[in-house]
Structures are given as structure tokens and as C-alpha cells.
């Protein structure tokens, strides 16, 4: 952009600093307090890892963490497979109606609460037993859409002539997919999978509605929600720090694999 006066530049830097402070101070305070020795969740009284240790001994949290892992891994695997195929199908065809676009886009924009009650009504109408499997069925819906959109973004700059080149050199359609198409789009597929994994790990409302009653299918966000409702504790701070660290690591990885995933 045009040359700026020093005063303008200072203002712009000030804006940036304030915005980043706004974005990161709440998180930083939370993380700092997770290492707090005292029992008060908000008053600093020295460094300690004891809340992390107490998490490790909390059976409810551990079982919720395991459930979350199962849901996230299975739904990510399914969504990655189907979402990638969907993306390739859509991009090959190119001439599709806006109806198809809307269908693929919808899971990303529908309010969580609406999808949650829709699935609850659907499952109870069919007399489905609710549990981890229904959460997985539900999570695949939005994970599909996100994987598809990440892979499609990559395919927009994909040189389709290499697919033809492979056929020209004698490869069958399946060999071409395995040896040419997939390796080239793999970073985007993995990035999409990591994104889906994070979304699934963090998802609360849909899981809450489709999990059914009982501890057996409680996920980590559900556990966190009930803990927060109960009041703030240093234990939540520690748990929150761990969950955030996991999501942020997955997302950073995803970003490195696929420049600009987050920027979609």
C-alpha cells in the first residue's frame, strides 16, 4: 500500500498489539493459573504441577478423554475417505448445480444446536440406541464438509493434465489415483484430517445431544462443560491447557502441511 506517515504506522502497530492482547490474555491467564499451587482457581500462589497430577488420577476425565479420542479418530477416518472422494468428484465434474454446493456447504454453516436436535429427533424416531456410535455418525457430517473444502482448495490449483499423462503412459484409473493423484494432494488430505480431528475433539453440543444419558459415552467437552457449570477449579485450568495444546499442535501441523488451510 501507499507510503504511510510514522504516526499512521504507530497507530497500526498499536491496533495490532491491542488485538493480540485481547486474543491471548484470557488464554494466557488460564494457562498460567493451571500451574498455580494454591487451591484458589484465580489467585497466584506459586508454581506447581499438582493439578495435572490430579487430572491423571481422575477416572471420569480419563474415560471421557478416551471416548473423545475414539469419536475423533473414527469420525476423522470416515470423513477423510469420503470427503476426499467427494472433493475429487466435485472438482472433476465442475459443472454442478448450486444445490450440490449448498448441500456440501450446509454442515459448516447450520447452527450446531439445530443439527443437534435434528439428529436427536432422527435417532429417537428410528429407536436408535444413543452412544459413541451415534456421536460418530453425527461428527462425520460436519467433518466431511471441512475435509472436502480443504481438499477442494488444493484441487483448484491441481494440474489435471498429470492425470491424463498417467493414463497416456499406460496406467489404469486406480493406479493413477494411487500413484499420481493421491500423493500430490496428500498434504491437503492430511491437513483436512487434522482439522477434522480438532473439530471433533472440541465439539460439544452435537455430542451432548447424540450421546444419550449416562457416563459411558461422555466426551471431554461434555465433561468440561459439566465441570464449568459446577464452578471454576484449578483442575479445569489444567485440563483446558492440555486440550488447547493438543488442538493447537494439530492445527499448526495442518497449517505447515497445507499452507493456508486456516486461511480458507
Amino acid at each position: 500500500m501507499a507510503e504511510r506517515s510514522p504516526a499512521t504506522r504507530r497507530t497500526l502497530w498499536l491496533v495490532l498489539s491491542l488485538v493480540f492482547a485481547f486474543l491471548y490474555i484470557p488464554i494466557a491467564v488460564l494457562v498460567a493459573l493451571s500451574f498455580n499451587q494454591g487451591g484458589l482457581p484465580t489467585v497466584w500462589s506459586g508454581f506447581s504441577l499438582k493439578w495435572y497430577a490430579s487430572l491423571a488420577g481422575n477416572a471420569a476425565i480419563l474415560s471421557a478423554a478416551l471416548n473423545t479420542l475414539i469419536v475423533a479418530l473414527v469420525s476423522t477416518a470416515i470423513a477423510t475417505l469420503f470427503g476426499t472422494l467427494l472433493a475429487i468428484g466435485v472438482e472433476i465434474r465442475r459443472q454442478y448445480g448450486s444445490g450440490l454446493e449448498a448441500l456440501i456447504f450446509a454442515p459448516m454453516i447450520i447452527p450446531d444446536i439445530v443439527l443437534a436436535i435434528a439428529l436427536l429427533s432422527f435417532f429417537s424416531l428410528l429407536d436408535f440406541t444413543l452412544g459413541l456410535h451415534t456421536i460418530i455418525l453425527a461428527h462425520v457430517v460436519f467433518n466431511l464438509a471441512f475435509v472436502c473444502s480443504v481438499v477442494r482448495a488444493r484441487l483448484k490449483s491441481f494440474d489435471w493434465s498429470i492425470v491424463e499423462a498417467s493414463a497416456d503412459l499406460g496406467a489404469s484409473a486406480i493406479t493413477t489415483f494411487r500413484r499420481v493423484t493421491l500423493p500430490v494432494i496428500l498434504p491437503a488430505v492430511v491437513a483436512g484430517a487434522l482439522l477434522a480431528f480438532t473439530l471433533s475433539v472440541d465439539e460439544f453440543i452435537i455430542a451432548f445431544f447424540t450421546s444419550g444419558a449416562g457416563r459411558a459415552s461422555t466426551t471431554l467437552p461434555m465433561q468440561i462443560y459439566s465441570m464449568i457449570r459446577f464452578g471454576i477449579t484449578p483442575e479445569i485450568n489444567a485440563l483446558a491447557t492440555i486440550v488447547m495444546a493438543v488442538s493447537i499442535t494439530a492445527l499448526t501441523l495442518s497449517q505447515r502441511l497445507n499452507r493456508g488451510v486456516i486461511g480458507q
Binding site: T42, A240, M244
Partner: peptide, 13 residues
């Protein structure tokens, strides 16, 4: 991209 609940919880803190 970090957990929505946690970001909200941070404001309670």
C-alpha cells in the same frame, strides 16, 4: 481453532 468451551471459560476466569 481451540476449544470453544475453553475460550468461553477463560472469560469466566
Amino acid at each position: 481453532w481451540s476449544n470453544y468451551l475453553i475460550r468461553t471459560y477463560a472469560w469466566i476466569v
